[in-house]
Write a protein that binds this DNA or RNA. Structure first.
Lengths: 240, 240
DNA sequence: CAACAAGCTGCGGGTTTACGCAAGACGGCG
DNA sequence: CGCCGTCTTGCGTAAACCCGCAGCTTGTTG
């Protein structure tokens, strides 16, 4: 059994290496990659079936890498090991995991024990292991009880990118008014009004900009989500 | 000689501990704190004169902590050890360092050697040591050659927070038109126009929102800068 | 099938933004 | 002192944005 580690911090990399050795005696070789690009290449060359990787990496982030890896071999088992449980990451991951694939999401703050357990569960038992903290987010966001619909999230990203209503309408194939409807919905859910302090009219916010900030502060968005969205946008702009 | 380490990642913390031991034989005690709040407290209790700390921590970030520490004892020597060299961080740090204080800024990607050298230079020789990559930013941003004026940065933060023109005017004691002038200046520098692709009018951006995004992508802003700005804003809102 | 909720769309109008134009204010500098 | 550059401010306008109102299309449910 081979395991591929993709992680850019050398300290964490060697820590993972040890953890893998300790948790998986049946593992005979461990390969290391220090960024997403190298990770993809090694995964391809070695036909890796067991990968543990970091989500935030400078060169090419984990979500990107995982996407291409899964595209080539959807049965690959991937354990994401991340510092944060931002909704933006969770959403990003669950958006790309293939049907029935085994994967895991463990926070770096978890104990050694938990990490090792997750390694065994995923790589040996093919079970999904999601950190409970992350799990909470998932339910909230995907079950639309409290969280955000995909269409709401979509429009959030669009205004975050700085598109005009009209541009969004074209991009998403909607009328101008529909876009604005969704915006209102979004403003509602983000609670942009109350913070606008309408008691006096002195604290008023620009709803559009405020929505983006609030989303950021609530970790609905983060840098890497923005980065990805921007790349997609550019792609779309090419295709006219 | 005592050294205080403030860093929330246990791996990095122990790595730092070792590095300090190796680089500073004259250091007899090392204290550790796992977040900014504890860091402040320990610094106070031990009257620490030598601190090395991480900038991004979950509980209370390094800039906040450093500010209160320096407020109490401005001659404290602090070495910041950070993952990133975002302009937002650099600006944040250089905004709070007291006159003549010795401090350092080293990236986590630097070699062992470099870290140890920095430790000695700052703690023993009282010299400032700034990573050259960071240094580059500093000159660009503070010498206003290419970078941003304080007033431009200020207004950037204001629209990022989601304030209206009018609100900004009140907050900064300017007329509405002046605020808008500064905005245009900002849009210019951020190059929001060209990316608006004015050749056809199909790709037009919402300048205000776009400016924020571009600033984010260029690391002029980041999460912790936003967080700080938001706190200041709330404070200001209290005082009506 | 009727009823109903949810989403899309056009219309209309009040606000906010973006910005050209031009008139002061302030600070160097020859 | 007069000239010049930078910063501020007011006026005015076209565009973009926020949003209530109302008519339509769907999918769901009793």
């Amino acid at each position: 059994m081979k395991v591929l580690i993709v992680e850019d911090d050398p300290l964490h990399r060697s820590y993972l290496h040890e953890a893998v050795n300790a948790a998986l005696p049946e593992c005979d070789t461990v390969i290391e990659a220090e960024n997403g690009t190298v990770g993809e290449k090694l995964a391809r060359d070695h036909k890796s079936a067991h990968i543990v990787m970091d989500l935030q990496m400078a060169n090419r982030n984990g979500i990107e890498a995982a996407r291409t890896i899964w595209k080539e071999r959807p049965e690959t088992r991937i354990l994401f090991w991340s510092n944060y449980s931002d909704e933006a990451y969770v959403r990003g991951v669950s958006r790309i995991v293939p049907d029935g694939a085994a994967y895991g999401y463990v926070l770096k703050s978890a104990s050694d024990e938990r990490l090792k357990l997750a390694l065994r569960s995923i790589f040996i038992e093919s079970q999904c292991v999601i950190d409970r903290e992350v799990r909470g987010l998932q339910q909230k966001s995907l079950g639309q009880t409290n969280g955000f619909t995909d269409s709401e999230y979509e429009i959030l990203v669009d205004i975050a990118l700085g598109l005009t209503d009209r541009a969004i309408a074209r991009r998403r194939g909607l009328s101008l008014r529909s876009v604005q409807n969704r915006l209102q919905q979004l403003y509602d859910k983000l609670d942009v009004y109350q913070s606008a302090g309408e008691d006096h009219e002195d604290g008023r916010f620009n709803l559009r900009a405020r929505a983006v900030t609030v989303a950021f502060l609530r970790k609905l968005l983060n840098y890497s989500a923005l980065e990805r969205a921007e790349a997609e946008l550019q792609e779309w702009l090419e295709g006219k």
